[in-house]
Amino acid sequence: MAEERVITCINCPMGCRMTVTLEDGKVVSVSGNTCKRGETYAHQECTTPVRMVTAVVPVEGSRLPCSVKTRQPIPKALIPACMKVLSETTLKKPVHAGDAVAVNVCGTGIDVIATRSVL
């Protein structure tokens, strides 16, 4: 089944509006991009979109929460599930930047790590 999607390239301020044609979930054509980077992005975004997730998590005995991030981008569809895991997480001191806060979050194989230390 053919499907057309219009997306904006995020790689530079041109913000090219690209029309992507998909067949059975596969990209068959991209138009509207000015350069090759747009095409690469269109493929990624229309087949396996990923995002970094950043948030804060409470730390026992600390007034201020600890900021965290996924070590790598995770599938976009898993963002709500990842946020849910984090909303149920509380850390214990000491937390060091780089420590895993949630291992293999939502089965992605990717850890959520602390981005600052709470000692």
């Binding site: 997306i7 904006t8 390239c9 995020i10 530079c12 301020p13 913000g15 995002r51 976009k76």
Partner: peptide, 12 residues
């Protein structure tokens, strides 16, 4: 704002 933020913060 950056296109990246318009896509990833609003459109998403």
């Amino acid at each position: 704002g950056l296109n990246r933020n318009i896509v990833q913060c609003l459109q998403d």
